[in-house]
């Protein structure tokens, strides 16, 4: 089978970008999307042309490095899938496939399909942790955590930080990403001591990075490779209000 690829090429953060078209790219239905880009790149390199730049690493859908908007959909048409787990069997012979990078002011383009997601790291640095000195922890079973709570915390903690939620959001909002970490640590007893300062700090940083606000379209949830739900956004909202009422009361 053959497809036509329109891939966004941009030589640097401040350069003008444009689509480059690769016609009649031979592909195998069992190939992953990134393997198709590999094929294009091997050809380009052999011709002495610069390969298409894209982030990728584990190719198992867990590292969160890969991602691009394929035919208008973050990570492409797959369900609960990263780009590396999207296979060409999701397309038809002769399809034209458009590929462009995540678009958000907080994710500036580095080159071609590669974007800078360090804003996510800074959101975590603003409070997405439990301050615990190595060696000072009590026994792991000292604090029982009911299975339902542990399971819900785990759901939230499965976030891979790929940025698809931002890419798919009409407002380029990072609420799903931020709320997943706020909720994961807010649900478990270990996270309680810093619960208020965490949500205040992380929401502050999220806004400072230039992400948009949430208007409850739920596009993030639909694009999330881990299926993290918007109920965690509600929990972030509640925690933020709680933290404010708490600080106002003091």
């Amino acid at each position: 089978m053959k497809v036509t690829l329109k891939v966004w090429r941009q030589s640097g953060p401040d350069a003008e970008g444009a689509f480059e078209t690769f016609t009649d790219v031979p592909v195998d239905p069992a190939m992953s999307f990134l393997e198709m880009l590999d094929t294009v790149n091997v050809q380009l390199e052999a011709e002495g042309k610069e390969p298409v730049v894209f982030d990728h690493d584990c190719r198992e859908g867990i590292c969160g490095a890969c991602g691009a908007v394929v035919n208008g959909l973050a990570h492409g048409p797959g369900k609960r899938s990263t780009l590396c787990q999207l296979h060409l069997r999701s397309f038809n012979d002769g399809d034209e496939i458009t590929v462009e990078p995540w678009r958000a002011s907080a994710f500036p383009v580095v080159r071609d399909l590669m974007v800078d997601r360090s804003s996510f790291d800074r959101i975590i640095q603003a409070g997405g942790y439990v301050s615990v000195r190595t060696g000072s922890a009590p026994d792991g079973n000292a604090m029982p955590i009911g299975k339902p709570v542990a399971d819900r915390a785990m759901e939230a903690a499965t976030c891979i930080g790929c940025g698809a939620c931002v890419a798919a959001c009409p407002n380029a909002s990072a609420m799903l990403f931020t709320s997943a970490k706020v909720s994961h640590l807010g649900l478990v007893p270990q996270g309680q001591a810093e619960r208020d300062s965490r949500v205040l700090g992380m929401v502050d940083q999220m806004d400072a990075e230039g992400f948009g606000g949430c208007t409850n379209h739920r596009e993030c949830e639909a694009a999330c490779p881990k299926g993290i739900g918007v109920e965690y956004i509600a929990q972030l909202n509640r925690d933020l209000v709680r933290a404010n009422l708490g600080s106002a009361a003091k």
């Binding site: 439990v130 060696g135 922890a137 792991g140 955590i145 542990a150 270990q190």
Partner: peptide, 19 residues
């Protein structure tokens, strides 16, 4: 294990809340 639990790592638990 103690260190990771204290960091909030959501290890699987049984219904009694134990690891």
């Amino acid at each position: 294990i103690d260190q990771c639990v204290a960091q909030g790592v959501p290890f699987a638990r049984d219904y009694g809340g134990m690891l």
